[in-house]
Simulated scan of single mutants.
Amino acid sequence: MTQDDLYRTVVLQRTKTPLYAGKLAQANAQGQGTNPLCGDRVHLHAVIDAQGRIDAIRHETRGCAICAASADLMAERVTGQEPARIRQLHADMEAAVQTGNAPAALGELSAFAPLHRHRSRIRCAMLPWTALMEMLNDDKDR
């Protein structure tokens, strides 16, 4: 399976049947992101423990398939992770969509690497990450 095939498969699968969509009633942190150019919106709800680790996270995404799939895969990948690891994953994701080279640590998120050929869609894939990083920065300030 080529990287482009993986991209199509992963995006379609996670858009049709997201595993991390919805709200968390016990959330103690929230983040949101909006792309005014296309109307994509992401709202994150998370339970963050005293060490800053994400115990649980859900997303409410209104937008394109790329944004929705990225939010769902991001939520899966960061669950149980500490802030330093999440920041590294964010950097790896940013590099992957900018260059097309994805480190193995990204797992299924590497499916977004082909977006480097479609610059206008990079923001779609990165919007959930932007919301996540803002949420983590807000949590650090508490």
Rank of each mutant, 00 (worst) to 15 (best):
Q88A: 12
L6P: 11
S120L: 11
N101T: 14
Q30R: 13
C38L: 04
D49K: 05
I48R: 06
R121G: 00
L19E: 14
A131M: 03
R41S: 12
M93N: 03
L19Q: 15
M133G: 10
T130C: 04
N35Y: 07
R85G: 01
V42I: 09
R53D: 09
T130H: 13
N35S: 10
I57N: 02
C64V: 04
M126T: 09
G63K: 03
T34D: 09
W129S: 02
R58C: 08
Q30L: 09
R85L: 11
T9Y: 13
R77Y: 05
Q13G: 00
Q3A: 13
P128H: 07
Q30D: 04
C67D: 06
M93T: 00
A68I: 11
A50W: 00
A125G: 02
R119I: 06
T79Q: 15
R77I: 03
T79Y: 05
V11T: 06
R85N: 08
C38I: 06
L12H: 11
H45C: 07
G107L: 09
P36W: 07
R53W: 03
A84I: 10
D40H: 01
N137D: 15
Q13Y: 03
G63H: 06
V78L: 05
E134H: 13
D4C: 00
M133A: 09
A95T: 13
L136V: 07
A69V: 07
A102L: 12
L115P: 12
Q51C: 06
D40S: 10
D5N: 13
Q32W: 05
G63C: 07
V10I: 15
L115V: 05
Y20P: 00
M126E: 05
Q30V: 13
L109W: 01
L136K: 04
C67G: 05
G22P: 05
L12E: 14
V10Y: 10
A84W: 02
M93W: 08
M135N: 08
M93R: 02
Q88E: 13
A46F: 08
A104P: 11
Q30H: 15
Y20S: 09
E94C: 06
E82W: 07
Q81S: 14
F112T: 07
S70K: 02
E134C: 01
A96F: 09
Y20I: 00
T61V: 15
H43F: 08
P114Y: 04
R8Q: 13
A71Q: 04
D55L: 14
T9L: 11
T61K: 02
E94K: 15
R121L: 07
P36K: 08
D92I: 01
L136H: 05
T34M: 12
